[in-house]
Amino acid sequence: MAFLEVKNLKKSFGSTKVLHGIDFSMEQGEVVAVIGASGGGKTTFLRCLNFLEIADEGTIEIDGGFSFNAEKKYTESEIREMILRMGLVFQSFNLFPQYTAFDNVFIPMKLRTVERHKKDKSFDLAAALEENRERARYLLCEVGLKDKMQNYPWQLSGGQQQRVAIARALAQNPDVLCFDEPTSALDPELTGEVLRVIKELKDKGCTMIVVTHEMEFARKVADRAIFFADGVIEEEGVPEKLFEHPTSPKTAAFLGHVNGSLNG
C-alpha cells in the first residue's frame, strides 16, 4: 500500500456532485501539485482529506496512521484523531488574531498536550509544555520568523502570516501537509518567501499536497502534478511532461488558458 491512499472518494453538496470518485495515492516524502480551474473540486478534495468535509463515499488511508471509510460512523474524537494526522494551510492564513505568532503555534500544541496528560498522568506536564514551547520557537525560526515571534498577526505581512500558519500546521507533526492555494491571497512580491519555505520543507522530506496556480512552482518543486476537472482527476504525471505534453484536451485547454493569460 502507498503512504496515503484515497479510493473512490465522492462528495456532493445537496444535488451538486463535486467529487465524482477520486482515486489517488502518494508516497512518503512526495510532493504533489494539484492544478485545475475553480470549481473542479481541488479544494473540496483537500477539505475531505482534512475532514473539514466528510466524504459521502470512499476511503482515505494513511499507512500506519488511520483508515477512514465513509460507510462507517465516527465519533467526534475519532475524527479529531484523524484530523491531527493531516495538516492544512489555508489560502487566507486564518491565524488567530488575538494571539502572537508564537502563541498561534504554541497554544494548539498546548491543548493537545494537556488533553494527553488528562488521560495519562505518567509524564511531566510542565516539561512537556516546555518541549512544546521549544518546538514552537524552532518551527518559527525554520520559517524565518525568529524576530517576529512576539508580533500579532496584524503586525505581520501576508507572507509572514502565511509562514506562521505553516509553522502552526507543522507543529502537530502531520503525516501529510496540505496547502490550499497558499499564495493566492498574497501580493506577488510576497509569494516567493512562502514558496521558498515549501521548497525547504520538501528538502526535509515533508509529504505535501499543494493546490496551486503557480505553474512555475509546480514544475520546479512538485514530483507529480495532478489536474482536476469536473470532480475527477483528469490527468496526472511528472509536471514537466504534464505541462509540455498534456494528453487530455481539457488539460491542454486549461494550460493553454493559464499560459495565455500569463502572456497576455
Binding site: R80, F96, P108, L111, R168
Partner: peptide, 21 residues
C-alpha cells in the same frame, strides 16, 4: 469568519476549546 473555526478544527481543537480559546 468561518476560517477561524476551520483553522481550529484542523488543529484538532474540540468545539469547546475552539469557543474558549
Amino acid at each position: 469568519p468561518r476560517g477561524q473555526y476551520e483553522a481550529a478544527q484542523v488543529l484538532g481543537m474540540t468545539k469547546w476549546e475552539t469557543f474558549r480559546t
